[in-house]
């Protein structure tokens, strides 16, 4: 593992940045990671989401995973909620779609209706 002193510096920088950005999360993202979700590629979807957060330096998005979404035909399933807005469920979210959802919905605030499942 890399050095914990290095991590201490990262922590101090992150805390400073968080102080400037203010409290609260901009958005939350939930990836359905049950057996069928993983088989459909949910792990690669989530890895792509984390890669986008890292690449774009996004600090205020909470990413969690949940079990099966009970929507096996649409997996990988990802839910996005910006602020107190509607929790939007998206289907067939591969890595490329995940990157687009970060850009359009999480950062742009615009629901991508064509990938939405209801």
């Amino acid at each position: 593992m890399k050095s914990l002193e290095e991590l201490q510096k990262i922590k101090e920088r992150a805390l400073q940045r968080r102080k400037l950005a203010g409290e609260g999360a901009r958005a939350r993202i939930i990836v359905a990671m049950g057996t069928t979700g993983i088989a459909a590629g949910a792990r690669d979807t989530m890895a792509a989401i984390l890669k986008e957060l890292e690449k774009r330096g996004i600090t205020d998005v909470v990413v969690t995973q949940t079990g099966s979404a009970g929507m096996s035909t649409y997996e990988p399933v990802v839910q996005v909620q910006v602020g107190d807005g509607e929790l939007v469920t998206y289907g067939n979210v591969d890595a490329a779609r995940a990157a687009t959802l970060i850009e359009k919905h999480v950062l742009g605030g615009e629901v991508v209706a064509e990938w939405q499942v209801k």
Partner: peptide, 29 residues
């Protein structure tokens, strides 16, 4: 070996693992 308990002990409660710099640290490790 990578043990997130050690990482969590340094980060405390205010910096999540999803912080971009923490993600980079984990990726590099």
């Amino acid at each position: 070996t990578l043990d997130t308990r050690e990482i969590r002990a340094v980060l405390g409660d205010d910096v999540p693992f999803s912080d971009p710099d923490v993600l980079a640290f984990l990726n590099e490790s």
